[in-house]
């Protein structure tokens, strides 16, 4: 399942790097592509392993506000 989120709080390329680290940190997330330029991130995950709420919570825990694109 692939969902695109708006992350308006990204203020540099490093934020994108931090968010992309979720692909290593969350089980069931296959890939994360975050773009500081677009202020968006695309998360590819397996809903059988991880729910969307868990993904959102993980983003918020990193200090970012999130809304679905």
């Amino acid at each position: 399942m692939k969902i695109t989120y708006n992350i308006p709080d990204m203020h540099c390329g490093n934020c994108a790097m931090r968010l992309e680290a979720l692909e290593d940190e969350l089980q069931g997330v296959t890939s994360v592509n975050a773009s500081y330029h677009k202020q968006q991130m695309v998360v590819d995950f397996n809903p059988a392993i991880i729910s969307e709420e868990q993904v959102i919570r993980a983003i918020v825990e990193k200090g970012y506000s999130v809304s679905q694109s």
Binding site: H11, C12, G13, A16, M17, E20, A21, D24, N33, Y36, H37, Q39
Partner: peptide, 27 residues
């Protein structure tokens, strides 16, 4: 200053494969 989104393109980001490599290496 966050004047306009277009200026975000002035920020040079390292290529994804580099950041991914560094991140995984750093673990």
């Amino acid at each position: 200053f966050n004047v306009h989104p277009i200026f975000r393109y002035f920020n040079i980001e390292p290529p994804k494969f580099i950041t991914r490599y560094i991140r995984r290496k750093s673990k």
